[in-house]
Design a protein around this nucleic acid. Structure first.
Lengths: 246, 246
DNA sequence: GCCGATTTGTCCGTATGTATC
DNA sequence: CGATACATACGGACAAATCGG
């Protein structure tokens, strides 16, 4: 799977951090040590480590070393990070939960003015319009609305929507998702939400909208995901040691 | 401000994208062109561009060029991105809004078991415990609770808390924030929330917790920010063209 | 389909600066 | 002060994708 040298080193380092070979709070072996370990140039090591820095796994200290600050600390049940380019199914099954999806609506249509303004997909564009309920360990977690451009993702069926859209994108449509822009807000619940989700006495829910861009920079998808608030978690890491490179 | 060559090139490119010198949807000048433009090596250009890629400003296309996919698309009022290492005050004033802060509680205490579990700050640690209401253009937007380690950020006063804590960290305490981990959830509102925020008929709010780490990898701060739901927005960009470097 | 030019992607080596100990 | 560590910058080489003729 790792397609390049720096990528396989990155994966190896991450594995060793996760499995506590390199312990949280300690320093990674120095660049020179890693050079000998992996038999590569200094630049390649630095690329691999940069990747870890960007993800907030480690922190570089000038003149000292690179410290591991991973410290996984899940507070809530169902605490998973949507890091990297992946959808709900992938993220959640990797965390060991069971996922089921029920398709409520699956139709073809064209983008009207209202949808254009909301989703960013151009007016008149033929799309699949899909609404689904998604279950986590048997609990209805969220209702999703997907708009998908037919010209870019052709041949989508209801059966595909019952599994994973992201899986279809990459495997059947040969599509590569390059960028995802997400936005999180809190909104009042609608009768539609209440029909499918156990909201108890919550009168609002967590809404995450996503826009997916392919390798041509074209937005081919829009998702609005309306989440049961007591199950919803979103994690994010920022660092100022970006140093994109070397 | 730009401390390095690649950083100033990054800033210049970003400025030109924002000001539409390089238009959305078009390609950046090729690396070779930029090398001549800025009079530097290819690596330096690639570092600057990597930075833009990571932020989701542009997308690289192998063999073709680097496409601009900036397209700022604010849907809501008060739509700002907490990108980069900055706090509420900075983010919001840069977007042109007026901020005010009222300090409700300002005391010293030590971390007890309950707080330790919740915040990640070790038991018995002396801290400042602060609660504040923050106003955006005169509207109460959120109530914040801050726990700040006294040993790392000494000398904090109530007057500082009325301005910007992040400002105090960097300017008065000489502290550099290296990493911020954020988590977003939705929770029921409490009587305390309802006392200070106009929640109308919302019975819950957007809760963002943050943990700030300094250059030694030590978490010196914990914030719980309880936001009026109709004003809260959180943006996030992911890309798989990370390629941290070169 | 092939070929060559262009453009980005990966990798290497080296030199110098700066922070830590 | 010297040794070690990360940070910045330069240079070159080859691979892989794209596009035009």
């Amino acid at each position: 799977m790792p397609k390049s040298k720096y990528d396989s080193i990155y994966n190896d380092l991450k594995l060793k951090i996760d499995s506590n070979v390199y312990e949280d709070g300690t320093y990674l072996p120095s660049e020179n040590t890693l050079i000998k370990l992996y038999g590569c140039s200094r630049n390649t090591i630095r690329r691999a480590v940069s990747h870890l820095i960007i993800e907030g796994y480690v922190q570089p200290h000038h003149g000292k070393g690179v410290r591991i600050i991973h410290s996984s600390s899940p507070n809530r049940k169902y605490d998973f990070t949507m890091s990297g380019i992946q959808g709900f199914t992938d993220t959640v099954t990797k965390s060991g939960y069971e996922v089921k999806t029920k398709v409520i609506v699956f139709t073809d249509m064209e983008v009207n003015e209202q949808l254009e303004k909301k989703t960013g997909i151009p007016l008149g564009m033929p799309i699949y319009y899909i609404r689904r309920v998604r279950y986590l360990d048997g609990i209805a977690k969220m209702v999703d609305t997907n708009l998908i451009r037919k010209d870019i993702v052709p041949g989508l069926t209801k059966a595909d929507a019952e599994k994973s859209l992201f899986f279809y994108f990459s495997n059947s449509a040969g599509l590569e998702i390059k960028t995802i822009k997400r936005k999180i807000t809190v909104e009042h619940s609608t009768p539609f939400d209440e029909k499918y989700l156990e909201l108890d006495d919550y009168n609002c829910l967590a809404v995450m909208t996503s826009k997916c861009y392919n390798e041509d920079g074209i937005q081919f998808e829009y998702t609005e995901s309306r989440n049961r608030p007591d199950i919803f978690v979103f994690n994010s890491v920022l660092t100022n040691s970006l140093k994109p490179n070397q």
